[in-house]
Design a protein around this nucleic acid. Structure first.
Lengths: 157, 157
DNA sequence: AACCTTATCGCAACTCGTTGCAGTTGCGTC
DNA sequence: GACGCAACTGCAACGAGTTGCGATAAGGTT
């Protein structure tokens, strides 16, 4: 979600955001922004391409991917990596969080700032390293899979 | 490195390992194992394909990737994800470690068990979640990039 | 040594993304 | 309102990785 109000409220703002960054406001970008705005949670590049195509069949993958890059540079979008390492995009003004994936059952959870505190702090102290929480993906086995000993089923990490 | 002694020492062991898992010992796998054995650190799938091809030009990508899967199932190989999310394979009996990547300058470091302790412990306690250290990739900004304020150059995360 | 089961191989086709390049067009300026 | 620069688009070709399928060949049996 880009909005804090309604799409028609915020889009002009975004446009300004773009212009002041020396970027241009094009129909294609407008469409992509609109689709992102209607999206909850995360989207993969290809999902975004599909959704855009369902509105404008002329949508090109290269344009979508390049736009995502641009949006990320401007700070309107961020990406993390799913279980398979594929990029998953989410729109900024959502609360910053990381992801916890169970490599066995495939479930996933959000990691809030609170929960990540220990991790962030550890790296900051030891190395002066500033961990990017929204980019953090932790993989392992969840409680129930650990309990269930054998691997329940075939989710790939 | 698969070896603890020389390749010719350990390969027969691996073969047994395979057979007892109902897997077959083929020339292609033998080649892949050999190349892995001669490799230090990490390899990407495509790098492995290239190296195998330089020995046997007939090497097929699908075979290599499928073999990597098989090796991972058996536990002889593990993978983590690089800055771009691409899989990077490393051979097991190396010390288990995660990876720390600076999204700005692109440098990366290993995260030892000691350094990861706080993180692992936090998730274990809070969720009974068993973090897979060798699969852990932490991204952010390193000390010098944080100090240097502006983004030095264009490494992509 | 011939035989049989089935794991593995190689191919071809496909998905997800990226990139170089030439043509287009947003948009600030005159 | 026309002009011009450079950002952006779309195409086409490519790189990485996956998958379905028929053909091949390990390796245990007889």
């Amino acid at each position: 979600m880009l909005r804090s109000g309604s799409p028609t409220d915020t889009l002009p703002d975004v446009r300004e955001h773009f212009r002041s960054a020396g970027m241009r406001w094009t129909p294609q970008r407008r469409l992509i922004l609109q689709v992102l705005d209607e999206t909850d949670g995360h989207v993969t590049g290809s999902e975004l391409v599909d959704r855009c195509r369902s509105i404008d069949p002329g949508t090109t993958p290269s344009t979508v991917y390049r736009t995502l890059r641009a949006l990320e540079d401007v700070g309107l979008v961020r990406h993390a990596h799913g279980l398979d390492g594929r990029e998953e995009f989410h729109v900024r003004p959502g609360n910053e969080h990381g992801h916890l994936h169970c490599g066995d059952c495939g479930s996933s959870w959000e990691i809030g700032p609170d929960e990540a505190a220990a991790t962030i702090e550890a790296f900051r102290r030891a190395r002066g390293f500033d961990v990017d929480l929204s980019h953090l993906t932790v993989v392992g086995r969840c409680r129930s899979c650990v309990a269930g000993a054998a691997k329940p089923s075939g989710a790939r990490s």
